[in-house]
Amino acid sequence: MKTENTVWHNQQISKAQRADLKQQKPALLWYTGLSGSGKSTVANAVDALLFKLGCHSYLLDGDNVRHGLNGDLGFSDEARVENIRRISEVAKLFLDAGLVVSTAFISPFASDRAQAKAKLEEGEFIEVYIDTPISVCEARDPKGLYKKARAGEIKDFTGIDSTYDVPVNPEIHVKTDTKSVEECAEQIVGYLMAKGFITQASLQSA
């Protein structure tokens, strides 16, 4: 909760200076998709490729963040909204450091994704829709969550008894049921290169 005595403290080193030092443009790759769609797998592959190219990046994974910062949150609609609000603020801080940030969360509500985008500068928010049919996700079921949801052991499960708002116009549209993980990662990194987030100067300095 904000108070009247909380004042923003301006820092001596600017966001632009931090980005220039890294020879890249800050960006937030916001991965969204159903459970089992491959968000974390693809995001990890992209992060590894960026590291190999010499880029400064960081991955905020949904499950990992719930082990710490968001460990007090459940999976009700209200808790999901707060989960996304917190991670949006954390991601914004990482962008201020000049990084290319990835967040791998289901983030089922379009309104929450729009709010996350509104916190950033124009062009920094890159929605990555991991588009995988629910039948494929359920067949994979890497964590056994669909089985539990079908048995009524898990409530408010996205795609079963909780809504997922499909992205209308994502910057990057990835289909993990027809492409390999490597192909998906190359598609996303290719977008970053084409849009100038990763420059030839940054790659040459790696």
Rank of each mutant, 00 (worst) to 15 (best):
M1F: 09
T3R: 09
E4M: 14
T6Q: 14
V7E: 15
W8D: 08
H9A: 14
N10W: 15
N10F: 15
N10R: 15
Q12Y: 00
Q12F: 01
I13Q: 07
S14Q: 04
K15R: 11
K15D: 02
A16Y: 07
Q17R: 07
D20S: 15
L21Y: 03
K22T: 06
K22F: 08
Q23L: 13
P26K: 12
W30H: 01
G36N: 02
S40P: 01
S40C: 10
V42E: 04
V42W: 03
V42I: 15
N44W: 05
N44R: 15
F51Q: 13
F51P: 00
G54T: 03
G54D: 11
H56Q: 05
Y58K: 10
L60Y: 06
D61I: 00
H67S: 06
H67T: 05
G68D: 04
L69F: 08
N70K: 09
N70A: 08
D72R: 08
L73K: 00
G74P: 04
G74V: 05
F75D: 05
S76A: 04
E78R: 12
E78W: 09
A79Y: 10
R80D: 00
R80F: 05
E82G: 05
R85K: 10
R86T: 07
S88E: 00
V90E: 01
V90A: 03
V90M: 04
K92P: 00
L93Y: 09
F94D: 08
L95K: 02
L95V: 10
D96M: 06
A97R: 01
G98H: 03
V101C: 03
A104Q: 04
A104T: 01
I106P: 04
I106D: 02
S107M: 09
F109W: 08
F109H: 12
F109M: 12
R113Y: 02
A116H: 01
A118R: 10
A118C: 04
K119C: 09
E121H: 14
G123K: 13
F125H: 07
V128A: 00
V128F: 00
Y129V: 02
D131M: 09
D131P: 01
D131N: 15
P133T: 12
P133A: 08
S135Y: 09
S135W: 08
V136K: 13
V136E: 13
V136D: 09
V136T: 14
E138F: 11
E138P: 10
A139I: 03
D141V: 05
A149Y: 00
A151L: 13
E153H: 10
T158K: 02
G159K: 10
I160M: 11
S162H: 09
S162L: 07
T163W: 06
Y164W: 08
V168D: 10
N169D: 12
N169R: 13
P170A: 13
E171G: 08
V174G: 04
K175H: 15
K175T: 13
D177S: 14
V181R: 06
E186C: 02
Q187M: 15
Q187S: 14
Q187N: 13
Y191D: 00
L192Y: 07
M193T: 04
K195Q: 14
F197A: 02
T199F: 06
T199K: 09
A201E: 14
L203E: 05
Q204F: 07
S205W: 03
S205V: 09
A206Y: 11
